[in-house]
């Protein structure tokens, strides 16, 4: 995981590229456990299933999915920890 600052809020980036189901969600969970409530986590995945998995997971676990970017073979999600 890398760290940068965006608009004053700490953003962690998790690069889950190349991982297949269920690992993007498993790694996302582990990453979100390490940040504070309200902080942002950016997840990059190449698993097409993530397009449905990450929104379902975020809704169920009380986090907010702020953005989804579908670049065809690379998907970026911005999640705010609940």
């Amino acid at each position: 995981m890398s760290e940068d600052t965006r608009d004053g809020t700490v953003t962690q980036t998790l690069d889950a590229s190349g991982l297949a189901c269920p690992m993007p969600i498993v790694r996302t969970r582990q990453a979100i456990d390490k940040i504070a409530s309200g902080d942002l986590l950016e997840v990059i995945s190449t698993d097409r299933g993530s397009l449905r998995d990450i929104p379902a997971w975020a809704e169920s676990t009380g986090h907010t999915l702020l953005e989804v970017d579908d670049a065809g073979d690379r998907f970026t999600f911005l999640i705010q920890k609940g």
Binding site: C21, P22, I25, V26, S60, T61
Partner: peptide
């Protein structure tokens, strides 16, 4: 084990 790890990821 896919479902077990996913369940754990759901908390």
């Amino acid at each position: 084990y896919i479902l077990a790890t996913t369940g754990a990821a759901y908390g």
